[in-house]
């Protein structure tokens, strides 16, 4: 009886090891890795106004940082030595200075309104992390989570007003919002 139990215990452990081994080998990306990947690629499909083209590229984050060190590692993977990228976190609205891209990850709608008003007319590519009505309020790109739907929306009117030229290939994969916002 004991032998029988041992035999089956070993079988179960073997089964679990099998589960485990194939789980580890599975290739999956976390949502934050995907978003970091898309943000880095967005910059290839968006043309900034000429006056900002040759500066160091400033990427700002407002709100909870979902990326950790993923963003830096992805930049290294893409650019080997991404010295012209400056990553910066803003803990309050007052700290926000000029940046090329501002990723906003906040639930506070008042803060979001304030930021969008602050950056109104400035050539900052604002990217919201699943923020309701972000593009309708003048944000440029917003990650959204519609089942079977587009995964980000773009307000191309707002982008145009701020002097950005967005490649039509990027527009084609986004849900388009047209609103002038703040």
């Amino acid at each position: 009886m004991i032998l029988k139990k041992i035999k089956y215990s070993i079988s179960i452990i073997l089964a679990l090891l099998l589960f485990n081994s194939q789980r580890v080998s599975a290739q999956k990306y976390t949502e934050s890795q995907l978003k970091a990947g898309y943000i880095i690629n967005f910059t290839k499909f968006v043309k900034w106004p000429d006056s900002l083209a040759n500066q160091n590229f400033v990427f700002g984050i407002y709100g909870d940082d979902i990326f950790g060190d993923v963003f830096q590692k992805m930049l290294e993977a893409r650019y080997k030595s991404p010295n012209n990228w400056i990553l910066t976190e803003y803990n309050s609205i007052k700290e926000i200075e000029y940046c090329h891209v501002l990723f906003i990850n906040s639930n506070n709608q008042d803060e979001i309104n304030e930021i969008l008003k602050l950056l109104s007319g400035k050539p900052v590519l604002t990217i919201g992390n699943n923020i309701p009505y972000f593009c309708q309020r003048g944000g440029i790109i917003n990650f959204i989570s519609e089942p079977n739907g587009k995964k980000f929306e773009i307000n191309y009117i707002s982008a145009k007003n701020k002097g950005f030229i967005i490649d039509s290939r990027l527009l084609a994969v986004a849900k388009l919002i047209s609103a002038s916002g703040y």
């Binding site: 999956k28 499909f45 992805m74 993977a77 079977n148 490649d167 994969v173």
Partner: peptide, 30 residues
């Protein structure tokens, strides 16, 4: 715990993402 992509695969991921935009491949994005 979501499974993490091995870090050395970020280059592949970035290339894949770029190709999804280049090819306007919404199915792969989804």
């Amino acid at each position: 715990t979501p499974e993490q992509a091995p870090e050395n695969n970020f280059e592949d991921l970035l290339d894949l993402i770029e190709s999804t935009i280049n090819n306007q491949d919404t199915a792969t994005i989804n």
